[in-house]
Design a protein around this nucleic acid. Structure first.
Lengths: 235, 235
DNA sequence: GTCTATATTGAGATAGAC
DNA sequence: GTCTATCTCAATATAGAC
């Protein structure tokens, strides 16, 4: 923390200027599935990327502004605070998850199939929105300190109830073990799923589908080598 | 044995004064297994508690000093920076883990038994040192920004090699599945173990041993309800 | 809608008296 | 070994010109 950088604040020269076509904007075009449309969305997307990489607290509004290609004061034309940007990132994220889960539940499969589908849907969202995923996993502590947290909690509630619901259903109908608390199982599989993108390495060679299968298989069948219910013995 | 430590002066306000018996000190006596001995250790323990609860960045040196019962300048008699306190917390933590793992390996059990023992040892450390555990899980991003990170990484290396070693051994001798990457399995079970203390609720009614059994059983046998290798059918 | 310039606050760290 | 007092820097946010 003693570090004094010999910083020159923002050499006004290196911005080349037209907002819509900055480096930041074209980066998104190349890398992300959903390309930010307007300046406001570009701010959100850029901030999400930086929050995910460096943490919310360590990312300054000036850095966000630099990356977007404007000066920091201009951000306040779109958002009234840094936290408001955070809120927009997370509610967008949670809304997407909740919607996917609703689709899954609408299929009315059995508990095991539903669980597998929830795992897959979660991993897909994690892949599509890696920044928001990382922020949500890593910055809960920051979030709790902000007044906006309540709004996030509401959105998170539905998500949690979906997981717990399918687990309890499986226990009730006899397809899942009843000697282990559904809450404990929920915590384990939920963390496994959401943290599996941590460290950005998508596990060389593990597609989203294959990872979903691996996770579901471990959690339902176990890692011990012995004949398994559904099918073939281990290769 | 926190009896009589030297007196301090200083009346400034609400602190009642003898360092050894401040609120902070007696809190430790009540709650923790290892009671801080000297002032230096009290600083470390207090800081750990606050870092765990509020995050490193949000905890100011002034807050730490207040909780200990001194003024902020005095901390710099013991540590030359805030990060040095963080480093002491984490290397102490990792050294304890590495030592426990060495004990486990010395027993020369089979892979499944060793894995179970590592899970249990980890949960015990997590229970004994919840603050350091939380810090290590939640503040990796902060750590990476600090020059001290390299030292932490070295200590973490041995820990990781222990996990991976036992998993690979089980795969090699045929007791674990070979159709799932050991690295993937390692990540899943490691996160499950270290995060299981998250949220401070020790899972009402789940002792450390019972939780270790639950985790090991889920990861080895699976959550599906069907006759399991080792014994009785689910209740 | 963006910039320039700056107010304001808060943090880590230091110097030197006691 | 602790306190008092203060330095220095960095960060969020604002005001108002263009």
């Amino acid at each position: 923390m003693a570090g004094g950088l010999p910083l020159t604040r923002h050499a006004a020269g290196n911005r080349s200027s037209r907002p819509g076509t900055t480096q930041a904007a074209s980066r998104w075009k190349a890398l992300r599935m959903t390309e930010p449309r307007g300046r406001r969305e570009l701010i959100v997307a850029t901030a999400a990327q930086m929050f995910a990489r460096k943490g919310i607290r360590s990312t300054t509004v000036r850095e966000i502004a630099d990356a977007v290609g404007v000066l920091s004061g201009s951000l306040y034309h779109y958002f009234s605070s840094k936290d408001e940007i955070v809120l927009e990132i997370l509610t967008g994220f949670l809304d997407v998850i909740a919607a996917r889960y609703r689709d899954v539940l609408a299929r009315e499969q059995d508990a095991a199939q539903t669980l597998r589908a929830i795992v897959l849907a979660s991993l897909q969202v994690a892949r599509e929105r890696p920044d928001a995923t990382a922020i949500y996993q890593n910055e809960l502590r920051y979030l709790r300190e902000t007044p906006l947290y309540k709004e996030v909690q509401v959105a998170a509630g539905e998500v949690q109830r979906t997981w717990l619901g399918v687990i309890e259903r499986g226990v009730a109908d006899g397809s899942f073990r009843s000697d282990i608390s559904p809450r404990v199982f929920h915590r384990l599989i939920r963390d496994a799923v959401w943290l599996s993108g941590r460290g950005q390495h998508p596990d060389a060679g593990y597609s989203t589908e294959r990872l979903a299968d691996a996770i579901t298989s471990i959690f339902l069948d176990g890692f011990s080598a012995r004949p398994r219910a559904g099918g073939a013995a281990p290769a």
